[in-house]
Design a protein around this nucleic acid. Structure first.
Length: 549
DNA sequence: CTGACTTGCGCC
DNA sequence: AAAGGGCGCAAGTCAG
C-alpha cells in the first residue's frame, strides 16, 4: 500500500509526496487538489495528512471519497499517551504544536484560516517519528491497528456530517405541537407548560413561582414543608404531594422544549438533515465526542422525526451489552464468554448459575465496571468474582493501579491520562486509620474517584476500540455494496458508542443488515483473535429511527 | 453587561 | 465506613 503525504502549500495548493524511498513529488494548485486525490485514489493508497478535519470536508464537497488515511493529529494523541511508546521517539521541534493541535471547527473548505497553527507543523517529520515509534514499540501491531481504526473513524465522522441524519421538520413540529401546544412567541411559555406551571404554583401556594428556577423551586418546596435538598426528578418522585405529578410533567416537557424544541430545529436542521459534528477521540477513553445539537443525547421522544427518504430505509443496529462482552474478551474470562454466548448476556449469567436474576446480573456487572459498590451491586461482587475471576480481577487491578497514580491502558494500547491531583504525589496511606473529614479524607476520596475512572477506562476504552473496528469495516463493506455517486450508496449517518444508523436505498437494506453483522464479527476477531466472545446485534430495518429496537 | 460556574437531565 | 464511569447542552446564578 502506497503511503502518500498531503501537505498544504502557500496559496492553497497542495503537495503529494510518495513516502516510499525515492518516491515522487507532485504539486497542484488549489482547484486541482480534489482531482489529484481522486486520480490517485483508484490505485490503492493511504493518504497521510495532518488532520482529517482540515482535508476531508472539502474533498467530500468535491465528490471525492478516500478509502484510507493516517490522521497524524489523532495518531499523535494516541501515541503520546500510550505506555507502549517510547516518548523520546516522538519528540521533535514541533511536538508541542502537535500536542496542542485542535480539530478544525468549520467544514467549509473555502474558509481555510490564514493563520492555521497546523501550517506551522511539518507532517513529514511527524510521520517519520510516528513510524519510528510504532516500529520500536513492543505492542506496535496493536497500536498500528488502533491508529488505523482511529483514522478510519475520522473519515467516517466527516462523511456522516456531510451526509447528515435524515430529519423531518414537519414530523418534529407536529410532535412538539401535540405535546406543548402551538409554537409560542419568543420569551413566552407554550400553552401546556403555562397550564402545568399554574398547577405547580397553586399546589405550592406560590403564585409568583418560576418553576424554571431551581433555587426558587427549592425554596417553594421547602416552604410547603417538603423534605428536599434539591429539585431533581428522582428526588421528587419519592414524595407524596399534589405538586409532584404536575411538576414532573412540567420538567419533562420543559426539558423537551429547551433541548429539542423549535429553536433546536431552527439551529440544527437544514434541508432535511441533522448535521452534528462528530469528534473522534474527543473523549480520553477513545469514545467520540460531538459538537452541535446534542448528538450524544438525541432523546427517544424526538426520534420519530428521523425518517428515511422516499425509497430509502434506515438500518439501525446496536450491540447488546457491548462493554461486559468486551470485558470478557480482554480478560480472557472463559466463563463470562460462555455467558456472552447468549443474545442477552445477563440471562446468560443467570443460566450459568452466577446469579439468580437478570436484574442482579446487570446491577452486579455495571457496579463492577463503574466502581459502584454500594447497596445491592456491591453485594453481588463477591459472587461475580468467584464465577468470573479473570474479568473481575481485570477491573479491580485497573482500579488499584489508578489509586496508586499509575497509568492504565486499553487492549490496543490507549493510555489513561496521568492524574494531576495532590493525592497522586503521595503514596498510599496503607494501615493508617481512615478519617471522616480533613485533607487526608479528601485525598482518599479523590484517589478512589480516580480508581473508578481507571477501572472504567479500560472497559469503556476497549469498547470504543471495538466500535471503531466495527465502524471501519462496515464503512468499507457499505462502499462495496453500492455503486454510483456517494449520495446514491448506502452510507453511515449516525454513530453513538455502540449503535449505528445506515441510510440505504430500500432494495439494499437486507444486504446492509447482513454487512452490519459481518462487520461486528470482524471487529471481534480483530480485537480478540480466536477467543470465543460473541457480539450479537439488534438490527432493525425501519422507516423511522423510533421504530428500531 | 459578560463570562464562568452550577444545576439538572438527556444519551451510552 | 463509604465508595456510580463517560459526555453536551440550556437555563439559572453569581462574581467582576
Amino acid at each position: 500500500m502506497d503511503r502518500v503525504l498531503l501537505r498544504r502549500l502557500e496559496g492553497g495548493g497542495a503537495e503529494l509526496r510518495d513516502r516510499a524511498d525515492g518516491g515522487g513529488v507532485t504539486r497542484v494548485g488549489a482547484d486541482e487538489v480534489a482531482g489529484a486525490v481522486a486520480a490517485r485514489e483508484g490505485a490503492g493508497v493511504r493518504w497521510v495528512w495532518d488532520d482529517t478535519t482540515r482535508w476531508y470536508p472539502a474533498l467530500l464537497a468535491a465528490g471525492v471519497r478516500v478509502e484510507r488515511c493516517t490522521d497524524l493529529r489523532l495518531a499523535h494523541a494516541v501515541l503520546r499517551r500510550s505506555p507502549f511508546v517510547d516518548r523520546s521517539l516522538l519528540t521533535g521541534a514541533d511536538t508541542a504544536g502537535w500536542d496542542a493541535l485542535a480539530p478544525a471547527e468549520t467544514g467549509d473548505a473555502a474558509l481555510f484560516p490564514l493563520d492555521d497553527p497546523a501550517d506551522a507543523l511539518d507532517p513529514a517529520a511527524e510521520d517519520d517519528r510516528q513510524q519510528a515509534a510504532l516500529a520500536a514499540s513492543p505492542q506496535g501491531g496493536r497500536l498500528a491497528l488502533l491508529v488505523a481504526a482511529e483514522s478510519s473513524g475520522a473519515l467516517v465522522a466527516a462523511e456522516m456530517t456531510a451526509a447528515g441524519l435524515p430529519w423531518r421538520t414537519d414530523v418534529h413540529e407536529r410532535l412538539l405541537t401535540d405535546l406543548l401546544g402551538p409554537r409560542p412567541a419568543p420569551g413566552l411559555r407554550p400553552a401546556e407548560l403555562e397550564r402545568l406551571a399554574g398547577q405547580v404554583r397553586s399546589a405550592l401556594a406560590a403564585p409568583d413561582l418560576n418553576p424554571d428556577s431551581p433555587a426558587e423551586l427549592l425554596r417553594a418546596l421547602q416552604t410547603a414543608g417538603l423534605p428536599v435538598g434539591d429539585t431533581r426528578s428522582w428526588t421528587l418522585e419519592r414524595l407524596e404531594h399534589p405538586v409532584v405529578a404536575p411538576l414532573l410533567e412540567y420538567k419533562r416537557l420543559a426539558r423537551l422544549l429547551a433541548a429539542n424544541g423549535w429553536s433546536w430545529l431552527d439551529t440544527w436542521v437544514r434541508d432535511g438533515r441533522f448535521r452534528p459534528t462528530f469528534l473522534p477521540g474527543g473523549v480520553v477513553t477513545g469514545r467520540w465526542a460531538s459538537h452541535g445539537g446534542g448528538a450524544l443525547s438525541v432523546p427517544t421522544a424526538v426520534r420519530p422525526a428521523s425518517v428515511a427518504d422516499q425509497g430509502w430505509r434506515l438500518v439501525v443496529a446496536d450491540v447488546a451489552q457491548l462493554e461486559p462482552r468486551v470485558l470478557a474478551g480482554m480478560s480472557g474470562d472463559a466463563a463470562m464468554a460462555e455467558a456472552a454466548r447468549a443474545a442477552d448476556l445477563y440471562e446468560g449469567m443467570v443460566a450459568g448459575g452466577a446469579v439468580a436474576t437478570r436484574a442482579e446480573a446487570k446491577l452486579g456487572i455495571l457496579g463492577a465496571m463503574y466502581g459502584g459498590t454500594r447497596g445491592e451491586s456491591g453485594r453481588m461482587l463477591p459472587r461475580l468474582a468467584r464465577r468470573y475471576p479473570r474479568a473481575i480481577d481485570l477491573v479491580e487491578q485497573a482500579a488499584r493501579a489508578g489509586e496508586r497514580g499509575e497509568v492504565v491502558h486499553t487492549l490496543l494500547g490507549r493510555g489513561s491520562p496521568q492524574p494531576t491531583g495532590a493525592w497522586a504525589q503521595r503514596p498510599l496511606d496503607l494501615g493508617e486509620a481512615p478519617e471522616e473529614t480533613g485533607p487526608r479524607a479528601d485525598r482518599d476520596r479523590e484517589r478512589r474517584a480516580w480508581g473508578r475512572f481507571t477501572r472504567n477506562f479500560v472497559v469503556q476504552g476497549t469498547g470504543a476500540e471495538w466500535a471503531l473496528c466495527w465502524l471501519a469495516d462496515l464503512r468499507n463493506r457499505l462502499w462495496r455494496l453500492g455503486d454510483g455517486a456517494p449520495a446514491e450508496r448506502p452510507h453511515l449517518v449516525f454513530f453513538l458508542h455502540d449503535e449505528v444508523v445506515v441510510h440505504t436505498p430500500e432494495a439494499l437494506a437486507p444486504a446492509v443488515a447482513g454487512e452490519v453483522r459481518a462487520a461486528a464479527v470482524t471487529a471481534g476477531r480483530l480485537l480478540f483473535g480466536g477467543f470465543p466472545v460473541d457480539f450479537p446485534l439488534v438490527v432493525s430495518v425501519v422507516g423511522s429511527w423510533a421504530d428500531a429496537g
